[in-house]
Design a protein around this nucleic acid. Sequence first.
DNA 1: CTTCTGACA
DNA 2: TGTCAGTA
Length: 97
Amino acid sequence: MTDHGQELGLYAISVVAQLVGTGQQNIRLYERRGLLTPDRTAGGTRQYSDADLAVLRRISELLAEGLNLAGVAKVLELEAVNARLQGELALLRSRRA
DNA sequence: CTTCTGACA
DNA sequence: TGTCAGTA
């Protein structure tokens, strides 16, 4: 079996831009606005994980729904805490069982 | 690959 | 305001 679930692939900004269907400049703008924080190489090149790729796809959806970047940032922030809380709740349930 | 700048709707 | 093109 090869990799399942969280893949550990790293992509350059040119490939993620093509996968998501947007320009490289936009992705850099998203990062500047705090929507993303991809890893950087020692040389300063951005390396996008599959999690980052999923976030970028989410950003595209939200933008298409009419949100601006500030709204997208809020949604992503709330979704992040929601995911953390759900994980915490699941852990509490398993311990009580 | 990076940054910055300007034009467009 | 977000996107896109060109530049250094």
